[in-house]
Write a protein that binds this DNA or RNA. Structure first.
Length: 1215
RNA sequence: AGAUCCGUAGCUCAGCCUGGUUAGAGCACUACACUGAUAAUGUAGGGGUCACCAGUUCAAAUCUGGUCGGGUCUACCA
């Protein structure tokens, strides 16, 4: 045990952190903080996995500080808080990084580089910066288990994901469907929403837009005089290339439409058009309404128009129209070939229609828009995809066939087909307005070409099936801030769509669905999408575990079917193509595929071709050719138990696994991978390899009590966690979620590598230390507000908060070491200590209460600010300042011990209170204190219990009194500064004692309060007496002010008048108001008004005038200072000034605090009187044994006391 | 385009929920003081159209509606 408190020369936060970190590592402090709490209730925290293929930034420090502080706090509150780390390792960012590294594009994968090599690179690259992350984690003091993290690419992890998927599959929540997705014809690939949200993808472009005229077919409902013929629906589009694929027009049910008689501005033919009433102004000039039709010709500038009729959208529903751009490829027959029974070319209703743009009638091409697709499906419009995957028109679209809808090939001679379409429509009297339109349109970030929306096959999770339940569950979640939960997240849930799960990529969790060749698949290869959703082909299995590779059982048509798993040796097939050929030959002998099975025929022929031309054969080729497992037995190996351990569940290994059913039909895996968000959303289960292992562990750790991430995860991780918990376990995944805001640079701009305004977290931690950095991040702004990160702010925290705390400790250590205080004396009950001790302990307990409440509420900013306030305003600037003398004066007896015990308690409590936010400094402070006193058995502050409030020690009245003392002292000091002395001198130094201060009391209790703190005021301001003027004196003048709150309610409009009146009330009137009723409008009878009666509660009384004194006022507090300096006071002032000079000399000479000294002065008339008069006092202050005047001094030093020179010697007395 | 957060002193933020009197802190700046905690501290000063507009009200930084600016998320935009 040390007997002395460690003292330091200078505060070095970085060094403290380093030392403490070493100690933590040596003592396994983190591990023990968890094992210590074995058997205690658990507090469950989930770590959102970061991706380690990028460097950590300062913004990671904030969310991790937040997570860490909550976990540390809960640990100190007695919970066991396990924190498993994790790594997000799949996904696009990783793939893109690797592609950049290898200098390849997606198309090269499988060609220039094998999938195997590619994935191996991803696996290697993904944890590239793991060391850096681990370093950051440690240096910033983030306690998380780095030794047993979950890693999303590990087999066990993937297996759990598969279990989840199979559960969803069994419930019918996992389905395949065609959907309209962003697609880049230039790159030949679909794009994820993530890719679409890369910076710079949305660009303002000018496109040719056209308002097309769809001619209505004759119909009774449209039978209108003079308008039976030539009725057109106007519909606007910015993508004229979608017009040949048009199959419907969508109107809004409740939108008002009008039928207008006018002329086509291009052809000048009389037409009647239908559009939304709200949009008339867009196409017609008001002044031309009901213009002259008869004189109109093509030279006329003004086009007359008039409204013939109005409809609601509902009334238009079901009307039909003539196809706009008929061709061979889009005849009704063709449409019905693809979508049997389709009823296209009619008006339907949809809630997505607005009157913001266009005409209020939406041109609907189901293949090229998600809304269109939905509308098409709902109304049986059919589907037409007259543009192929390269982005050009297919055959049979007349003169447009073969033309690219945008310039995808960088053809210098490209002419815009959209313009040509518009021209054609103009000529045919089918265009009402053609113009360039500037809008924001997404582009493929890789090729910089505009994307199109295109139907693609995809797998979905049917989140919409549980929408209501998910909203219900969300309402039980504690969101910080609440608005994110109800707003951003709640809204998102309300507008939920099914989760598009599939990704056509290479590095990710494979979708574990195997199926037989089915003809619908061929559809898509023939460039037509499947329309039937949720259609399960006859043989399809979803694999939920590795075990099922050996054998998977599935109920099909009420029969249990067994599927066996095999490895396919593709290499052998390719090496031994003769063997394959002979198998094919033998099989073909017995069948005439050309007649019985045209698909098999086509694909068998293709397979022969491949063999003959010595090209690579894939598994797909074999399955297409309809080969069965018994045909291929030479190339297959049954999967056994022994294999299971080593199967890599990634591509391409997994794609070489097939299943066969009892007929030998082969099932191959569908090519998709799953969205990486599924990886992270399933971490509650997958991190434990649930349900294959750790079932108990899982139960104890689900759902989470708390998670926290950036607000950008709201629709990312927070959403996927929520979806999976709701669908799989009908539960929330987390009870509290804190979403923190962004970290911006000091100018409020988002940090990005591009702008070079990134703050390096390592450098920051190195320079300022982790504690100051964490404290700054937490207290500067609420976690959910975006934070303008400024290093100056950390500096301020360092100096102001940690500097002050360090100084306070240093002060304590200095004197405690002198006096040998080690808390060995009996504990003195707080109630028996001096009032100032009781006060600071009361404040401390109030602080504990507030910190606890705020941390329980996940409001760390408030907690931190409360601690700052306490330390600065209460402990340092008041308690220590006022108590200073108690520490260094007098004997080591009761009062001094009280002071030590009190300050010690405050420091110890502070070390605990700040422990969650500033873990290193807290432990440093705690250990410095505790190694000497051994008050607590724990070796680390993080193993202690968080302080609890002792409400018996809180004395609100005392705290109020002390506040009063502080305010009064502050007023007196300001008066001292202000007063003018006769000699022209401004201000009186605090060292110069003054006789008295006068404080008028509004009432008796106020007087009583001041009385109780008068000693403090006297010593703090160096004043001899405090004169309290009782309430009922005649000396002071009262002033009244209206209480707007109470009076406002009573008086309303008369308030202003009353306020002025009250302002003017004299002393007597005020007294009467205070004593009872008072009528403000004395002339109410004359004016026939009702009397305005005011009572004590309606006015606030203050005194701001004391005749003959200079006064200072703050609120209802007034002080007046007596500034007359008597000889006696002057002498004392002189003595104190002299003390100050000697003390400075002591310090300059580096004497110890306890050194006794001898002081000699050269005889001096001026100094003689005061110094002799206060000799004893001076000696006590400066620790002098002797203070004498002598005639002459050798080596004397000249000092200046109140503008008077003195020669002195100060010598240390031999011990 | 929708949702959401933000806009108060040169800077960082309180105050807004629950309307009320002269809108507060800290930093920075200036001056003066204090001093055995001293790279600390105190006092004073300058510095604000509380983004803008309208409304409700006796009274608006605060409540309501809108506009503008900034951030973020989401998006399928005809």
């Amino acid at each position: 045990m040390k007997s002395k408190y460690q003292e330091y020369i200078q505060l070095n936060l970085t060094q403290i952190a380093g030392d403490v970190l070493d100690a933590w590592e040596k003592d396994n402090t983190f591990e023990r903080s968890i094992t210590n709490r074995e058997g205690k209730p658990t507090f469950v925290f989930y770590e959102g996995p970061p991706s380690a293929n990028g460097m950590p930034g300062i913004h990671h420090v904030i969310s991790r500080t937040l997570k860490d502080l909550v976990c540390r706090y809960k640990t100190m509150r007695g919970f066991q808080v396990k924190r498993k780390g994790g790594w997000d390792t799949h996904g696009l960012p990783v793939e893109l990084g690797v592609e950049k590294l290898l200098g390849i594009t997606k198309e090269d994968i499988g060609k220039k580089i094998t999938v195997e090599e590619y994935n191996a690179t991803c696996r290697r690259e993904v944890l590239k910066f793991k060391d850096k992350w681990d370093e950051l984690t440690q240096k910033m003091g983030y306690w998380v288990d780095l030794d047993h993290p979950y890693i999303t690419f590990e087999n066990n992890y993937i297996e759990s994901l598969w279990w989840c998927l199979k559960e969803l599959y069994k419930k019918g929540f996992l389905y395949e469907s065609v959907s309209i997705q962003p697609y880049s014809p230039a790159a030949g690939t679909g794009l994820s929403s993530h890719e679409l949200n890369q910076p710079g993808t949305y660009k303002d472009v000018k496109d040719t837009s056209v308002v097309a005229m769809f001619k209505a077919t004759k119909n009774d409902r449209l039978k209108i005089e003079n308008a039976d013929e030539n009725i057109f629906f106007l519909a606007w589009t910015t993508t004229p290339w979608t017009l040949p694929s048009n199959l419907g027009l969508t109107v809004g049910t409740n939108i008002d439409y009008v039928l207008i008689k006018t002329f086509n501005p291009y052809t000048h033919l009389p037409v009647n058009v239908i559009l939304a009433k709200a949009l008339i102004n867009k196409y017609f000039k008001t002044e031309n309404e009901n213009g002259d039709f008869s004189s109109y010709d093509e030279t006329a500038k003004l086009i007359p128009w008039k409204i013939l009729k109005e409809f609601k959208g509902k009334e238009l529903e079901g009307l039909t129209y003539e196809q706009l751009l008929p061709g061979e490829a889009n005849t009704l027959e063709k449409i019905r070939e693809i979508t049997p029974g389709a009823q296209p070319f009619k008006v339907v209703t949809g809630d997505f229609v607005t009157t913001e743009d266009g005409t209020g009638i939406v041109h609907t091409a189901p293949a090229f828009g998600a809304d269109d697709f939905k509308a098409g499906k709902k109304n049986n419009l059919g589907i037409l995809t007259l543009v192929d995957k390269e982005g050009k028109f297919v055959d049979g679209v007349g003169e447009f066939s073969g033309r690219f809808v945008k310039n995808y090939k960088d053809d210098p001679n490209y002419t815009d087909v959209n313009v040509d379409i518009s021209v054609k429509l103009k000529k045919e009297n089918r265009a009402f307005k053609v113009e360039k339109y500037e809008h924001n349109y997404p582009h493929c970030w890789r090729t910089d070409k505009p994307i199109i929306y295109y139907p693609l096959d995809a797998w979905f999770i049917k989140t919409t099936a549980a929408k209501e339940r998910m909203i219900e569950l969300n309402n039980t979640i504690n969101w910080k801030p609440a608005s994110t939960g109800t707003g951003r997240f709640g809204n998102w849930l309300e507008n939920m769509v099914d989760w598009n799960l599939s990704r056509s990529r290479f590095w990710g969790t494979p979708l574990p669905v195997w199926r037989t060749r089915d003809d619908t698949n061929h559809y898509s290869r023939l460039n037509q999408p499947k329309i039937d959703s949720i259609k399960i082909p006859s043989y399809e299995i979803c694999i939920g575990s590795k075990q099922e590779f050996i054998e998977c059982t599935r109920e099909i048509e009420n029969k249990s079917q067994i599927f066996n798993g095999f490895f396919v040796n593709i290499q052998k097939i390719n090496n031994d193509s003769n063997l394959l050929k002979s198998i094919l030959d033998k099989w073909q002998e017995n069948y005439d595929f050309e007649k019985t099975d045209p698909y098999t025929y086509v694909y068998t022929k293709e397979l022969y071709n491949l063999i003959e031309s010595n090209q690579k054969i894939t598994l797909e080729n074999l399955v297409d050719a309809n080969l069965k497992s018994h045909h291929l037995k030479e190339f297959l190996a049954r999967i056994t138990e022994n294999d299971l351990e080593n199967i890599d569940l990634h591509k391409p290994t997994i794609d070489n696994i097939i299943f066969s059913n009892h007929d030998g039909e082969i099932l191959v895996r569908v090519p998709d991978l799953i969205d990486v968000w599924f990886d992270s959303g399933a971490m509650p289960y997958a991190q434990w390899h649930f349900p294959f292992e750790n079932q108990e562990e899982f139960k104890k750790n689900f759902p989470a009590d708390f998670i926290a991430e950036g607000v950008d995860q709201t629709r990312g991780w927070f959403y996927t966690l929520h979806v999976l918990a709701a669908l799989l376990f009908d539960s929330v995944a987390y009870k509290t979620v804190v979403s923190n805001g962004l970290v911006l640079d000091k100018n409020g701009v988002k940090m990005s590598k591009r702008l070079g305004n990134i703050v390096d977290p390592f450098e920051t931690l190195e320079i300022f230390g982790p504690d100051a950095t964490r404290w700054y991040l937490i207290t500067n702004a609420s976690p959910w507000d975006s934070l303008k990160f400024d290093l100056e702010g950390i500096k301020e925290v360092q100096r102001k908060f940690f500097g002050t705390l360090y100084n306070t400790y240093q002060f304590f250590a200095l004197y405690a070491n002198v006096d040998g205080f080690t808390f060995k004396e009996k504990y003195i009950p707080v109630k028996e200590r001096p009032e100032i001790d009781q006060w600071i302990i009361s404040s401390l307990n109030s602080l504990i209460e507030s910190v606890t409440k705020n941390l329980d509420d996940y409001e760390p900013t408030q907690a931190g600010r409360a601690i700052e306030y306490f330390l600065d305003e209460h402990l340092s600037n008041w308690y220590v300042r006022l108590s200073r003398r108690r520490f260094w004066k007098g004997e080591y007896e009761n009062d001094k011990i009280c002071a030590y015990q009190t300050l010690y308690e405050c420091l110890q409590a502070l070390s605990m209170l700040i422990a969650p936010i500033a873990p290193f400094f807290a432990d440093w402070l705690f250990t410095n204190l505790n190694t000497v006193t051994k008050k607590l058995s724990q070796e680390s502050v993080h193993h202690t219990d968080f302080p609890t409030t002792d409400s018996g020690l809180i004395d609100m009245e005392l705290e109020e009194r002390m506040q009063l003392a502080q305010d009064i002292s502050s007023l007196i000091l300001s008066l001292r500064k202000k007063v003018n002395l006769p000699g022209g001198q401004i201000g009186i130094k605090v060292r110069q004692p003054l006789q008295k201060v006068i404080i008028p009391a509004i009432d008796d209790s106020f007087a009583q309060k001041i009385k109780m703190v008068e000693d403090i005021i006297k010593s703090e301001t160096n004043i001899k007496e405090v004169d309290i003027l009782q309430a009922n004196n005649n000396f002071i003048k009262k002033k009244a002010k209206a209480n707007y709150k109470t009076l406002g309610k009573k008086l309303g409009a008369k308030m202003k008048w009353a306020a002025e009146k009250i302002q003017q009330l004299g002393d007597d009137d005020i007294t009467r108001v205070l004593q009872g009723d008072f009528i403000l409008n004395t002339d109410y009878e004359q004016k026939k008004e009702s009397p305005i009666i005011i009572t004590a509660e309606d006015i606030e009384v203050s005194t701001n005038e004391i005749p003959g004194f200079e006064v200072a006022v703050k609120g209802n507090l007034t002080v007046a200072l007596d500034i007359i300096l008597t000889e006696n006071l002057k002498n004392e002032g002189f003595a104190r000034e002299f003390i100050n000079r000697i003390q400075t000399l002591r310090k300059e000479k580096n004497f110890d605090l306890t050194d006794k000294i001898v002081v000699n002065l050269v005889n001096d008339e001026v100094a003689m009187l005061p110094i002799n008069e206060f000799n004893t006092y001076i000696c006590a202050e400066i620790l002098a044994d002797k203070l004498e005047f002598v005639p002459k001094l050798v080596d004397g030093i000249t000092i200046d006391v109140n503008n008077h020179s003195l020669t002195v010697t100060v010598t240390k007395k031999a011990k």
